[in-house]
Structures are given as C-alpha cells and as structure tokens.
Amino acid sequence: MNLFADTWHMAQRHIRALIRQPWWIAVTLVQPIIWLVLFGGLFTSMEDTPGWPAGVTFHEFIIPGVIVMTAFFSAGWGGMGMIEDINRGIIDRFLVSPAIRSSIITGALLANFLTIAIQSLIVLGLGAIMGASYPGGPLGMLILIVISGIVGFGFGAFSYGLALIIRKEESLIAMMQFLLLPLTFLAAAFIPLTLAPDWIANVAKFNPVNWAIEAGRSALIDSSPDWNLILTRTGLLLVFGALMAAFATRAFRSYQRTV
C-alpha cells in the first residue's frame, strides 16, 4: 500500500513541475501537429506506392507511429530530470526518509505514463480532425495507449538507469540522441516494412519500438485486428519493460554504493 501511495505522491511532484511550464505544454501540443502535418504533407504520395496497405491513408498509417515515437522520446529524456534531482540532493533526501525506495523510479514512470496517455489522446484527436478514421474503435485506442505506455515504461527505466550510472547531462543527451532516431527509423513508423530494405526489416524484428508500432497500428486501424500479433508483441514489450526495470534497479543500487 505504501508503495502505491509513495508512487502517487512522487508522480504528483513530476506532473506539477511539467504543467507549470508553459513552454513545455506549448511544445508538447505543437510537436505532434508538426509530425502529422509535415510528414503527412511530405509523404502523402506514398499511398500510391505499390505494396502500400489497401484503404489506409498516410495519416492513418503514421498516427500509431507518431504516438509511439512521442511516448518513447519523452520517456527517453526522463533521465535528465533524474540527474538534476541527484545533483541537487533531492534523491538523497528521499533515500533518508521512510519512503519506499522504488517509488522514486515508479513515481517518475507513472508521471510519464499519464503524460503519454494525454499526448496520445491529443494525437488521436488531431488525426481525427484531419480525417483519419479508427476502425479499431475505443478498444483499439486503449490498446495503442497501453502499448505506448509500456514502451514509455521500458525506455523511461532505461533512461533513469543510465542517468544513475553516468550522472552527466551531456553524456546522457549524447547517448539518447544516438539511440532515439535510429530506433524510429528502424521501425515501421512512417512506411510499411514491406517497402523497406530487407536488412532494415530484419533489424526491426528486434526493435521494441517496432513491436509497439505494429501491434498498436493493428489494434487501431485494422478492421479485423491481428490479435496474434498484438498479444505476442505486447508480451515481448512486457519482457523488455521488465528487463529495463531490472537494469534501473541495479543502477540504483550501484548509485547507492557510491554515495
């Protein structure tokens, strides 16, 4: 019970800090618009390419990609806040209190998940305004949001783990820059993998971002979703999330040893 209470109290702190930043809100709202309008405008002719999934507009196709991308990008930068909290002694303040230690991470992950859910709803709404239709209905949307949440959990935990180990903002920025965009392009975020070179399609099989995009897309825009795909990918994502959580926990212990 204490874990839930502490997680919620820690999450409140992060959410409060975010919603008090007008610039953060502005960019968060504008970013998906830019993705949709920019990529939508640039690549609409893709719809005419042979091999493009029948009856799917380019917008409909990239919406799950944009949602998953937004989720794992924002989660991937989570470690920056952790480094600031370490440097300011805030983490140590929590560690000398009776608070459940894992709530420092679970609280941040919960705040992350809530942000991701809201951002996803914004993209979905925006897509609908731009004419996209979602045959998967509310259930499909819910599945997509949950899947984005799991991806966010995994990358968030990874980012916190890295932050606890390297503890330098510059290094963390470099590492995340190195990872985030390639992971997006080694996935079916903007075009179906059937249109991508074989090697990319092969690498994508091992990319958690791609698992999330393919499963979320099937749930959202397929009139008869591929449940086999959705369940196996969700399972894989849960394994990925658990591994990253284990990594973050170990990183946390190694941090405590150096205090």
């Binding site: 702190r13 008090r20 303040r93 929590f94 209190s97 009776p98």
Partner: peptide, 27 residues
Amino acid sequence: GVVAQSSTADREATARENLRLQGQLYR
C-alpha cells in the same frame, strides 16, 4: 531528520507543496 549541505527543496513547487510531500513520505 536530515538537513543537507545545500538546499534540497523542489524549486518548481511551492513551500507548502514541498512540506506536504515531505510529510506524506513520513506517512
């Protein structure tokens, strides 16, 4: 209770919110 060398208050929160979170962590 521990007072660290430098301020460990959350600068994005109000004084009351800082005190409240601290109290909540002590149940």
